[in-house]
């Protein structure tokens, strides 16, 4: 599955548009990690647990988007956008969406 955040797949031609595909996940923080992060808040710096949490969550959302695109028979997703929103204190939604397309090698 080819994924780009531009309107085309460079070096390939889009032969068919299949419409919007999306994936989302809502994640909450682990209490233990939250306490550790609270301590880290005193001295500042990177909160590795949160970085990993959000990274994994985005990967999962992307995977869900890819699954949906595969179900439609697409071989690429273009114009991908990410969105993050905090639903309540302690939970965040990671949302990713794009256009499922079928691409072919350039004929030249």
């Amino acid at each position: 599955m080819l994924i780009t955040n531009i309107e085309s797949v460079p070096g390939k031609t889009i032969v068919k548009h299949l419409g919007l595909v999306q994936g989302s996940t809502v994640r909450a923080k682990h209490v233990g990690k939250d306490i550790l992060a609270g301590l880290k808040n005193i001295v500042g710096g990177e909160l590795k647990a949160y970085t990993e949490l959000l990274h994994d969550a985005r990967e999962q959302a992307t995977q869900r988007m890819i699954d949906q695109a595969q179900g439609m028979g697409a071989n690429a997703i273009t114009n991908v956008r990410f969105a993050t929103s905090s639903i309540t204190a302690g939970a965040a939604e990671l949302f990713v969406y794009g256009t499922a397309v079928v691409v072919e090698e350039d004929q030249d």
Binding site: K40, G44, L47
Partner: peptide, 14 residues
Amino acid sequence: SELVHGNVVVSVDY
């Protein structure tokens, strides 16, 4: 061509 990304969570000190 492929999608690449990077993320980081940084906290401000007290």
